[in-house]
Design a binder for these strands. Structure first.
Length: 508
RNA sequence: GGCCCGUUCGUCUAGGGGUCUAGGACAUCUGCCUUUCACGCAGGAAACACGGGUUCGAUUCCCGUACGGGCUACCA
């Protein structure tokens, strides 16, 4: 029987998810879906000290916004601590782990000493026999310490001189000598398991077939292999895929929340407010990104489909995803490209969909029924190709919604010539007589009127725009006039002309 | 420091012993279109980190060096 694929995303609730974490979740999700398997969410809440209120909800909500839906309710490691203790005990009983009584203070002292001597202290096969643990203490001493409640941890007894091998889906064969694996703490003195113990047990018990996680876990992966072996599960050990990190756009190092602040882009999927400091961070959602473009951008950061396609729906990503197209080197996050992806998705959005939201925004700003749905839809069509985010539409297109009070004097001073006044007056008359008030006939009328005044259309075209909108640039001129309709166009034109004749009163 | 992992245009990347005059995308520049801005179209500039091998031949394989990153906690 073939085991079906099951992956998981296992964040700890210590703060907001950043884009590296989201990408890890995304790849795990895509991989599972691609193979018709399941994707699970597990909250790794075994660190009581670093627990942050609200982080779990944040993680769930972020994934939801991204469209990454787990197939089962999320599991929480703190829900079943007995099982970790039981397995830790078993490891001790079977001689693959041991009790260690060294206090943090004592270990710190040993470390300091080693550093002073120019060495690095590691709790491993080479040092454990000099320390205070169930390997060095007599059985009675150990029993007494345990009975009197001396704090102790359980450590993995890493055998010396063994070669540990495993296959990484991204990095192929990985082989490590056990001598450089330290005796990792499995169970902390507060009775909580560490990540190492807990995730191995949980992954095994929940039938995880592929562990997809960040590269920061690569160095401890050999210890995890050892754990599977000692626990007797090596033949069912999941496969590993260690993903490269995401680096900051400039300079060096991995992306952090400070970079976003510093350079003006989000690093979190959705808004995060730190419960301790009350610091607020904007997310991609608040910055106006569609979840589709966010996901699209993230998917292509460290992975490629092997084709030239760049715009992908989630379904398309699932179809195209493959671990052997994951890049080994870390990727740098590029805010420019992120914006480009959003623009791509915005262009693909149906007009009526955009119009609906633009309408809501306009309603808030200008009141109910200020504009007809047809007018708003027309604005969307004109505005759409020139924006990357929806929120830009009412801003860059404000002249569509407000009668101009300010006019671009720079253009007027430069281009307005004596004698243009009569031309524009004729134009008003001609527009007024135009039966079919549409872009093409308006343009025709405009050109004909210009010619009859012996003017090159180009000389006065931008002036027409300034008179109507106050702006030097903007959406396509004649389609815009068509959208305004005759009444509004003539009104705006008269308004603009009034401004100009007052402005140039001295030189006619 | 030690141990791991990595290194193709500014960025994301394709490719992988001869087809590489190294391909695409973002950004950038030029031109076309246009009154403008944007879109679009056409074009330009732009990369195999370095040094040794192996080979008839290396960007591609191996080894070093440099650089970058990760790990080095009773954090995940």
């Amino acid at each position: 029987m073939t085991t079906s694929v099951r992956t998981r995303f296992a964040p700890s609730p210590t703060g907001p998810l950043h884009i590296g974490g989201v990408r890890t979740a995304l790849y795990a999700y895509l991989f599972a879906r691609k193979h018709g398997g399941e994707f699970l969410l597990r909250i790794e809440d075994t660190d009581r000290k670093r627990f942050v209120e609200g982080a779990e909800d944040y993680i769930v909500e972020s994934l939801k916004w991204c469209g990454i839906q787990p197939d089962k309710p999320s599991a929480r490691q703190s829900d079943d601590l007995a099982i970790y203790r039981r397995e830790a005990e078993r490891l001790v009983t079977e001689g693959n782990a041991y009790l260690a009584f060294d206090t943090p203070g004592e270990l710190e002292a040993v470390r300091l000493e080693a550093t002073a001597a120019g060495e690095t202290f590691t709790y491993d096969h080479s040092t454990r026999m000099k320390l205070s643990n169930s390997l060095t203490l007599s059985a009675d001493e150990v029993k007494n310490k345990v009975r009197s409640g001396d704090p102790c941890v359980v450590r993995l007894k890493v055998p010396a001189g063994q070669e540990i091998r495993f296959t990484d889906l991204v990095r192929q064969e990985v082989s490590v000598l056990s001598d450089r694996v330290d005796d990792k703490v499995l169970l902390k003195s507060d009775g909580m398991p560490t990540y190492h113990l807990a995730h191995v047990i949980d992954d095994h018990l929940s039938g995880i077939t592929h562990v997809i996680r960040g590269e920061e876990w690569l160095p401890s992966a050999p210890a995890h292999v050892l754990l599977y072996r000692f626990l007797g599960w090596e033949d069912q050990m999941p496969e590993f895929a260690h993903l490269p990190l995401i680096l900051k756009p400039d300079g060096k190092g991995k992306l952090s929340k400070r970079d976003g602040d510093r350079m003006g882009f989000p690093v979190f999927p959705i808004r995060w407010k730190d419960p301790q400091t009350s610091e607020k961070f904007e997310g991609f959602r608040e910055a106006g990104y569609y979840p589709e473009s966010f996901i699209n951008m993230l998917a292509l950061l460290g992975w490629n489909p092997g084709t030239d396609q760049e715009v992908f729906t989630m379904e398309e990503l699932i179809g195209a995803f493959s671990v052997n197209h994951i890049h080994k080197a870390p990727a740098r996050f590029d805010p420019d490209k992120a914006r480009w992806f959003n623009a791509q998705w915005l262009q693909r959005r149906p007009d009526h969909d955009l119009a609906e939201r633009l309408g809501a925004t306009l309603e808030k700003k200008y009141g109910m029924d200020s504009f007809t749905p047809e007018f708003i839809l027309g604005c969307v069509r004109l505005l759409k190709p020139r924006v990357q985010f929806e929120y830009e539409m009412p801003v860059t297109g404000s002249y569509l919604f407000e009668h101009p009070v300010h006019f671009d004097d720079k253009v007027l001073d430069k281009k307005w010539k004596a004698g243009f006044q009569p031309f524009f007056e004729s134009l008003v008359g001609a527009f007024n007589k135009t039966e079919t008030f549409n872009a093409s006939s308006l343009e025709e009328v405009f050109r004909a009127t210009a010619e009859s005044h012996e003017l090159k259309p180009g000389k006065v075209l931008q002036l027409l725009r300034v008179l109507v909108t106050g702006e030097s640039g903007g959406v396509d001129l004649f389609p815009m006039l068509e959208l305004f309709g005759k009444e509004k166009t003539l009104k705006r034109l008269a308004n603009g002309l009034a401004y100009v004749s007052a402005k140039f009163v001295d030189h006619g």
